[in-house]
């Protein structure tokens, strides 16, 4: 039980790391969500220019690895005189990355809504943006919940990549612990379990949100 006695001394820094991991995950998920709405509305309802621009952004981001985007922002931007702290760089990289994926999931939801829904909205005098906001979005969002919940699960796992730019999140702290104690197997198994616990909690929470927002006729169980 050498491992646990050593682990105890590391608890404060592990908790701090966990805090950063969760902060990074939530910021990216939430801000990324709003950016995703912008992207998907641009793709589906924008004029030619916005359509092409938003599609381009989504394609490029989904076509390159997360880690490369992170490196480009943290190690690359100083080359054009933009220096960011590891946390800022990570937050920006993860928001950009997540927004593209969330946009793709939302797009699926939007496209599942029939054209008649918009026409019915028009027919009672709603304008285009109100029709999207009040009629299409609430339905599209419900269809996209399982995918969006998956995205949060991805995010919490991939925030560990931020250790490569020196962000002291949970994985970074574990790596520190490993290099000090040489207890590699123990600490990585232990931290793996910690990640799993948080993923379990997130899954349960999104299930609750989904149940709360449940409306007859919006069964998404087949999408899981």
């Amino acid at each position: 039980m050498m491992f646990f006695s050593k682990l105890v001394t590391y608890i404060p820094s592990l908790l701090k790391g966990l805090g950063i991991t969760l902060e990074l995950t939530l910021l990216s998920a939430i801000i990324g969500f709003f950016a995703a709405i912008f992207l998907v509305v641009g793709v589906l309802y924008g004029n030619r220019f916005f359509k092409i621009l938003c599609n381009f952004i989504i394609t490029i981001i989904r076509g390159t690895p997360m880690m490369v985007q992170l490196f480009l922002i943290y190690f690359g931007l100083p080359g054009i005189n933009i220096k960011l702290s590891p946390l800022t760089a990570a937050v920006i990289a993860f928001i950009i990355n997540s927004s593209a994926y969330q946009a793709e999931y939302l797009k699926g939801g939007f496209m599942a809504i029939s054209k008649e829904q918009i026409e019915a909205a028009y027919s009672i005098g709603l304008n285009k943006w109100d029709a999207i906001r009040l009629i299409v979005f609430p339905q599209a969002f419900r269809f996209a919940i399982p995918a969006l919940s998956n995205e949060i699960v991805y995010l919490i796992q991939y925030t560990s990549v931020a250790y490569t730019i020196g962000l002291p999140e949970l994985f970074y702290i574990s790596k520190n612990f490993a290099s000090k104690t040489y207890m590699n197997l123990e600490i990585y198994l232990f931290i793996g379990i910690i990640y799993l616990i948080f993923i379990y909690i997130i899954t349960k929470l999104t299930d609750i949100v989904e149940k709360k927002l449940y409306i007859p006729g919006f069964d998404t169980s087949h999408l899981k």
């Binding site: 029939s114 008649e116 829904q117 026409e119 909205a121 027919s123 005098g125 009629i135 339905q139 409306i215």
Partner: peptide, 17 residues
């Protein structure tokens, strides 16, 4: 103009949510 002209659709088009 549209709000002065009601429309009833073949497939109902009720707002499902």
């Amino acid at each position: 103009i549209r709000q002065k002209i009601g429309m009833v659709f073949q497939h109902f088009a009720l707002f499902n949510h």
